[in-house]
């Protein structure tokens, strides 16, 4: 089966005791499946159906004019570009963090381990306000950058900064478990055959991390596409420059136009699903290519 390396290794390295014989006859699989379906139905399918139902009240003409407006299209472009940019930044930042957390015991390791998850706990609007204050032209970071001509707050760069902040834990936590269970024998084998450390890193370590990294990338991306709280305060919301789709959706709601909001939400969702499906396909191919068959 198509399971990522950490899963397969986990099951070999930490094999749990075999279940008591009679457990095998209990219909736990069916029960678990029924439970999974119920929960997913209540939490995902029903709200989504309600959303789609709301959106379906819109006439075809109004949907077309809403979704083809240049400003809305620009907002979609800005949303996707800043989200993808942020996810790539997260990838770059997450590799060294995940590597050090997964491989080494260094002073303050547990603190770093705990702090990595902070962006998940912080209310996103607080994060947005803080990052805006930090990176605006009067802020400590922004003043420094402004002297070299770089503006962050109230530009697409600021949006990406906020998105990278909220997305970082997802990428770190996707890669870290795989770093923990790297195939040491492959590393040793490569070294004993005379591979340099760079070659080991590039040809042996990196391929093992690629599927997990893509997963982390996708989760951070998914999180970013619908992000509102952290973005509105740092974006400045200028049409064609820094206006994201989630802002449009909230503006429609505030204006007592839930149908238009639902149409935009469904459009964002559809576009996100297409993008995420593409990333999922990429990850499957990476797993097939980089993870040896015996570890699947």
């Amino acid at each position: 089966m198509n399971v990522t390396p950490d899963a397969s290794l986990a099951s070999t390295a930490f094999a749990p005791p075999a279940p008591p014989a009679r457990m095998k006859h209990l219909p736990t699989g069916t029960l678990a499946a029924a439970f999974a379906w119920t929960v997913i139905a209540v939490f995902v399918v029903v709200p989504l159906a309600a959303l789609a139902f709301r959106a379906s009240e819109a006439s075809a003409a109004s949907v077309r004019s809403l979704l083809t407006a240049p400003r809305v299209l620009a907002a979609f472009r800005i949303t996707f570009l800043t989200s993808i940019g942020a996810a790539f930044v997260d990838l770059l930042l997450a590799f060294p963090i995940a590597w050090s957390l997964g491989r080494y015991d260094f002073p303050g390791r547990r603190l770093v381990d705990a702090l990595v998850d902070m962006p998940l706990a912080l209310p996103t609007s607080v994060a947005g306000l803080t990052l805006a204050a930090l990176s605006s032209e009067t802020g400590p970071l922004g003043r420094f950058l402004a002297s070299s001509g770089i503006r962050v707050a109230y530009t697409p760069l600021g949006i990406s900064l906020a998105l990278a902040f909220v997305g970082l834990p997802f990428v770190v936590r996707a890669i870290e478990p795989v770093v923990r269970v790297l195939d040491e024998s492959a590393l040793e084998a490569a070294r004993s055959l005379g591979a340099s450390e760079a070659t080991v890193a590039w040809r042996v370590v990196l391929p093992q991390l690629v599927p997990a990294a893509i997963t982390g990338f996708a989760v951070a991306l998914a999180r970013s596409l619908g992000e509102y709280g952290s973005v509105v305060f740092i974006a400045g919301n200028l049409p064609f420059k820094t206006e994201v789709v989630s802002l449009f959706i909230v503006a429609r709601l505030e204006d007592h136009e839930p149908v238009a909001a639902a149409v935009l939400a469904i459009a964002l969702l559809t576009a996100s699903c297409v993008l995420l499906a593409a990333v999922a396909g990429l990850e499957r191919r990476a797993t097939a290519r980089f993870v040896p068959a015996e570890r699947l």
Partner: peptide
């Protein structure tokens, strides 16, 4: 759990 392949 997130690093399973079927995340999409």
């Amino acid at each position: 759990a997130m690093s399973r392949h079927s995340f999409s």
